[in-house]
Amino acid sequence: MKHVKVYGPGCKRCETTEQMVKDAAARVGVEVDVEKVTDPKAIAMAGVISTPGIAVDGKLVHAGGLPDRSRLESWILA
Protein backbone atom coordinates (compact mmCIF):
# COMPACT_ATOMS: atom_id res chain seq x y z
CA MET A 1 0.00 0.00 0.00
CA LYS A 2 1.26 3.45 -0.91
CA HIS A 3 0.97 6.33 1.56
CA VAL A 4 0.11 9.59 -0.20
CA LYS A 5 -0.05 12.99 1.47
CA VAL A 6 -1.91 15.83 -0.21
CA TYR A 7 -0.74 19.19 1.13
CA GLY A 8 -3.01 22.22 0.97
CA PRO A 9 -5.29 24.52 2.94
CA GLY A 10 -8.48 22.81 1.77
CA CYS A 11 -9.11 24.83 -1.38
CA LYS A 12 -10.95 23.47 -4.41
CA ARG A 13 -7.68 22.57 -6.20
CA CYS A 14 -6.52 20.62 -3.16
CA GLU A 15 -9.80 18.70 -2.99
CA THR A 16 -9.56 18.00 -6.73
CA THR A 17 -5.98 16.78 -6.31
CA GLU A 18 -7.03 14.40 -3.55
CA GLN A 19 -9.72 12.92 -5.81
CA MET A 20 -7.25 12.70 -8.71
CA VAL A 21 -4.90 10.66 -6.50
CA LYS A 22 -7.69 8.25 -5.58
CA ASP A 23 -8.83 7.95 -9.20
CA ALA A 24 -5.27 7.37 -10.48
CA ALA A 25 -4.67 4.68 -7.87
CA ALA A 26 -7.87 2.92 -8.90
CA ARG A 27 -6.89 3.07 -12.59
CA VAL A 28 -3.48 1.48 -11.98
CA GLY A 29 -4.76 -0.98 -9.37
CA VAL A 30 -2.69 0.24 -6.42
CA GLU A 31 -4.14 0.56 -2.95
CA VAL A 32 -3.42 3.97 -1.41
CA ASP A 33 -3.81 5.55 1.97
CA VAL A 34 -4.47 9.26 1.31
CA GLU A 35 -3.76 11.73 4.10
CA LYS A 36 -4.77 15.38 3.77
CA VAL A 37 -2.37 17.83 5.42
CA THR A 38 -3.89 21.27 6.02
CA ASP A 39 -1.67 22.65 8.78
CA PRO A 40 0.38 25.55 7.33
CA LYS A 41 3.39 24.71 9.50
CA ALA A 42 3.37 21.04 8.40
CA ILE A 43 3.01 22.11 4.76
CA ALA A 44 6.04 24.40 5.07
CA MET A 45 8.06 21.74 6.92
CA ALA A 46 7.43 19.35 4.02
CA GLY A 47 9.00 21.85 1.62
CA VAL A 48 5.78 22.68 -0.20
CA ILE A 49 6.05 26.27 -1.39
CA SER A 50 2.97 26.25 -3.61
CA THR A 51 -0.12 24.11 -3.02
CA PRO A 52 -1.42 21.61 -3.70
CA GLY A 53 1.53 19.39 -2.97
CA ILE A 54 1.81 15.61 -3.17
CA ALA A 55 4.18 13.25 -1.38
CA VAL A 56 4.26 9.53 -2.11
CA ASP A 57 5.81 7.33 0.57
CA GLY A 58 7.52 10.35 2.12
CA LYS A 59 8.97 11.78 -1.11
CA LEU A 60 7.64 15.13 -2.34
CA VAL A 61 6.79 14.63 -6.01
CA HIS A 62 4.63 17.66 -6.85
CA ALA A 63 3.92 21.20 -5.72
CA GLY A 64 1.69 23.87 -7.24
CA GLY A 65 -1.29 23.39 -9.53
CA LEU A 66 -3.11 20.26 -10.56
CA PRO A 67 -0.83 17.31 -11.38
CA ASP A 68 -0.68 15.72 -14.81
CA ARG A 69 -2.73 12.51 -14.91
CA SER A 70 -0.02 10.28 -16.43
CA ARG A 71 2.68 11.62 -14.10
CA LEU A 72 0.40 11.03 -11.13
CA GLU A 73 -0.05 7.41 -12.17
CA SER A 74 3.72 6.97 -12.56
CA TRP A 75 4.36 8.39 -9.06
CA ILE A 76 1.88 5.92 -7.58
CA LEU A 77 3.41 3.00 -9.48
CA ALA A 78 7.01 3.92 -8.56
Rank of each mutant, 00 (worst) to 15 (best):
residue 1 M to V: 07
residue 1 M to K: 12
residue 1 M to R: 11
residue 2 K to W: 03
residue 2 K to P: 03
residue 3 H to N: 13
residue 3 H to E: 15
residue 3 H to G: 01
residue 3 H to Q: 13
residue 4 V to G: 01
residue 4 V to M: 02
residue 4 V to Q: 01
residue 6 V to L: 03
residue 7 Y to W: 06
residue 8 G to D: 10
residue 8 G to V: 11
residue 8 G to C: 10
residue 8 G to A: 09
residue 8 G to N: 13
residue 8 G to F: 08
residue 9 P to V: 12
residue 9 P to H: 07
residue 12 K to E: 01
residue 12 K to G: 00
residue 12 K to Q: 04
residue 13 R to P: 05
residue 14 C to Y: 06
residue 14 C to L: 06
residue 15 E to T: 06
residue 15 E to W: 04
residue 15 E to V: 10
residue 16 T to W: 06
residue 17 T to V: 00
residue 17 T to A: 11
residue 19 Q to L: 09
residue 19 Q to I: 06
residue 19 Q to W: 04
residue 20 M to L: 15
residue 20 M to H: 05
residue 21 V to W: 04
residue 21 V to I: 09
residue 21 V to F: 08
residue 22 K to I: 06
residue 23 D to V: 07
residue 23 D to M: 05
residue 24 A to F: 06
residue 24 A to Q: 08
residue 24 A to E: 07
residue 24 A to D: 07
residue 25 A to N: 08
residue 26 A to W: 07
residue 26 A to F: 09
residue 26 A to R: 14
residue 26 A to N: 13
residue 26 A to T: 11
residue 27 R to W: 03
residue 27 R to P: 00
residue 28 V to E: 03
residue 28 V to C: 11
residue 30 V to S: 02
residue 31 E to H: 06
residue 31 E to Y: 00
residue 31 E to I: 02
residue 31 E to C: 00
residue 32 V to D: 02
residue 33 D to H: 11
residue 33 D to P: 00
residue 34 V to C: 02
residue 34 V to T: 04
residue 35 E to W: 13
residue 35 E to R: 10
residue 35 E to T: 14
residue 35 E to A: 12
residue 36 K to F: 00
residue 36 K to E: 02
residue 37 V to N: 13
residue 37 V to P: 10
residue 38 T to C: 08
residue 38 T to P: 05
residue 38 T to K: 13
residue 39 D to H: 05
residue 39 D to C: 04
residue 40 P to V: 11
residue 41 K to I: 12
residue 41 K to P: 00
residue 42 A to N: 09
residue 42 A to T: 14
residue 42 A to K: 14
residue 43 I to M: 12
residue 44 A to P: 01
residue 44 A to N: 06
residue 45 M to Q: 15
residue 45 M to R: 15
residue 45 M to K: 15
residue 46 A to K: 12
residue 46 A to H: 08
residue 47 G to I: 11
residue 47 G to V: 11
residue 47 G to R: 11
residue 48 V to R: 04
residue 48 V to E: 11
residue 48 V to P: 07
residue 49 I to V: 14
residue 49 I to H: 00
residue 51 T to W: 05
residue 51 T to I: 15
residue 51 T to A: 13
residue 51 T to S: 09
residue 52 P to Y: 02
residue 52 P to K: 00
residue 52 P to S: 01
residue 52 P to L: 01
residue 52 P to N: 00
residue 53 G to W: 00
residue 54 I to H: 07
residue 54 I to D: 06
residue 54 I to N: 07
residue 54 I to L: 14
residue 54 I to W: 08
residue 55 A to F: 11
residue 55 A to S: 15
residue 55 A to E: 13
residue 55 A to R: 13
residue 56 V to G: 14
residue 57 D to E: 12
residue 57 D to H: 07
residue 58 G to C: 09
residue 58 G to D: 10
residue 59 K to F: 03
residue 59 K to I: 12
residue 59 K to C: 01
residue 60 L to Y: 12
residue 60 L to A: 08
residue 61 V to M: 13
residue 61 V to R: 09
residue 61 V to C: 07
residue 61 V to I: 12
residue 62 H to C: 09
residue 63 A to D: 04
residue 64 G to M: 07
residue 65 G to I: 02
residue 65 G to T: 01
residue 65 G to V: 03
residue 66 L to I: 15
residue 66 L to Y: 02
residue 67 P to K: 05
residue 70 S to R: 10
residue 70 S to I: 02
residue 70 S to E: 15
residue 72 L to R: 01
residue 72 L to S: 02
residue 73 E to H: 05
residue 74 S to A: 14
residue 74 S to N: 04
residue 74 S to D: 14
residue 74 S to Y: 00
residue 75 W to N: 01
residue 78 A to P: 01
residue 78 A to Q: 13
residue 78 A to V: 03
